[in-house]
């Protein structure tokens, strides 16, 4: 799909059956993601709908944070669910968690879009906010110490940690991070390389 062209969207009728997208998702441990993907692979549409109710809002949040545009993020989540539906049969639980896979599918669709389109204007627009937001988030990560990634991120210097968060969560390119942190491009690239190596060492 070409994103951002409303004429490519079907199903735009007013009396759509409403679907409470993830108003009250089940705890992740209760929802059987593997069984749900297996059911999708068998062609059970209800299973995909359950997955949408369970994760639609969180996937949209991830896509929205990356592309910074709600309509575009909905296009991406739309495409992600079609990809999940057609790819469910080839999902291999040996390669990672089913929940991780649906997030990866969504992120990479958003990243493919971002990297192929570029996003110069918005970076300038959000330069100050995003740093404040990221700082806030890093404080917030204190509540999730159980996650190993946060313990390991805490061991990085704050600016390098910001690089990782800006890239992974906000979808910023090397150049965008360089602009935002007012740091030379080469330095940002080196920080990211070293941060990845440090995270790999820390997390195994």
């Amino acid at each position: 799909m070409t994103y951002g062209h409303s004429q490519s969207r079907l199903g735009c009728f007013a009396h759509a059956p409403s679907l409470p997208a993830t108003a009250h998702p089940l705890p992740e441990l209760t929802f059987d993601y593997d069984a749900t993907l297996a059911a999708c692979a068998r062609g059970e549409r209800q299973a995909l709908q359950h997955l949408y109710e369970q994760e639609g809002a969180r996937l949209l949040g991830v896509a929205r944070q990356l592309v910074r545009d709600t309509a575009l993020a909905e296009d991406i989540v739309h495409d992600a669910f079609i990809k999940i539906w057609t790819g469910a049969g080839s999902f291999d639980p040996q390669r990672g968690s089913a929940r991780g896979w649906i997030f990866s599918v969504t992120r990479h669709l958003a990243l493919n879009y971002l990297r192929s389109q570029g996003r110069e204007v918005q970076v300038q627009d959000t330069a100050l906010d995003a740093l404040a937001i990221a700082t806030e988030r890093l404080d917030w990560s204190g509540v999730m110490q159980a996650e190993r990634i946060h313990l390991c991120l805490d061991q990085l210097e704050p600016q390098r940690r910001s690089c990782v968060i800006h890239a992974y969560v906000d979808g910023y390119s090397h150049a965008e991070i360089s602009q935002k942190l007012a740091t030379p491009l080469g330095t940002v690239k080196a920080w990211i390389k070293r941060s990845l190596a440090a995270l790999r060492g820390c997390m195994g």
């Binding site: 997208a21 949040g61 944070q65």
Partner: peptide, 21 residues
């Protein structure tokens, strides 16, 4: 993957599921 939690969830519009379906 745990870093995906840092993006705030956003409720999709009511039409999104219909489009997917």
């Amino acid at each position: 993957h745990p870093l995906t939690e840092l993006a705030p969830a956003q409720t999709p519009s009511r039409l999104l599921w219909t489009r997917i379906e």
